[in-house]
């Protein structure tokens, strides 16, 4: 009987440890997400106009643009393995620019190798309207490794391009303001694949490459360690349980 109680206690303890560590992990993820904006708030986040001049922003930091319709606006942000980035953009047009112009605003996201990354969901393109145009794009989860033949998102720089398509000549050059923000959801162990890149996909030619606030993850930590470890312990406990069961029956039957 005492054994049983002990086993229950151990089981509960193990489970609670698992839960608390999980919660702590999630909390640390949240922290790094929110901290980006405040720490570097005064840094210029005005959009660049090409891949080369893209303005680096942190996740959670707002990128801004004071531009003209027809401009191609570029920002870049870092994303690490296990994250699922979402890029949101808001475009404010002047009153005169709206109407039946046929123009569509759209965001495109490219990885560090300038490969276009598809959006899993989110309104990637919307017609120009009088009110603010809200755009969003959620990428696939960033993996630690993938085949060279695959275009899976990998840790590194991501470029956001915001522009209008389908513009008439008369629409060109009107003043617009835009805001862009990249955040990400921590997907965690379910997306943890084996293998790591030799270096994150950051263009080697960039002056100030985007980097997460606390550096790139080394790639060896995953919640799978906890799951597997806990599984091993539970298996051991179940083994002990099974063993006692057979011994226990004997102990009952022997007297």
């Amino acid at each position: 009987m005492r054994t049983k109680r002990l086993l229950t206690a151990v089981g509960l303890l193990g489970l609670s440890a698992l839960l608390t560590s999980g919660a702590a992990f999630a909390a640390s993820g949240d922290g790094s997400e929110g901290g980006g904006g405040n720490g570097k708030g005064d840094r210029r986040a005005d959009a660049g106009t090409s891949f080369r001049t893209a303005t680096a922003i942190e996740q959670g930091q707002k990128g801004t643009a004071d531009a003209s319709t027809g401009d191609y606006l570029y920002w870049s942000f870092p994303a690490d393995s296990g994250q699922r980035p979402t890029v949101k953009a808001t475009v404010k047009l002047p009153e005169s620019a709206s109407g039946a112009s046929g123009a569509k605003w759209r965001i495109d996201v490219y990885d560090g190798l300038r490969r276009r990354q598809p959006c899993m969901y989110g309104m990637q393109a919307r017609p120009a309207a009088a009110g603010p145009v809200e755009l969003a794009c959620t990428l696939r989860t960033v993996r630690a490794w993938s085949d060279p033949w695959a275009a899976d998102p990998l840790p590194g720089t991501y470029y956001v391009r915001l522009t209008a398509t389908g513009l008439r000549t008369a629409d060109l050059g009107q003043p617009v303001t835009a805001e862009v923000e990249a955040t990400s959801k921590d997907i965690g162990g379910s997306a943890a694949v084996d293998g790591t890149l030799g270096a994150p996909l950051v263009p080697g030619t960039e002056r100030s490459p985007a980097e997460p606030e606390d550096g790139w993850s080394s790639g060896w930590w995953t919640s799978r360690w906890i799951w597997t470890g806990a599984g091993g312990i539970l298996a051991a406990l179940a083994g002990v349980g099974g063993y006692t069961l057979t011994r226990g029956r004997r102990a009952v039957s022997s007297p």
Partner: peptide, 23 residues
């Protein structure tokens, strides 16, 4: 998977079952 590690309730169930049978 990363380092060949497992994850999920199916893994835990399988491990517990194996452990129990082994015991």
């Amino acid at each position: 998977a990363a380092f060949g590690l497992g994850r999920g309730w199916w893994l835990l169930g399988a491990l517990v079952l194996t452990g129990f049978v082994g015991g």
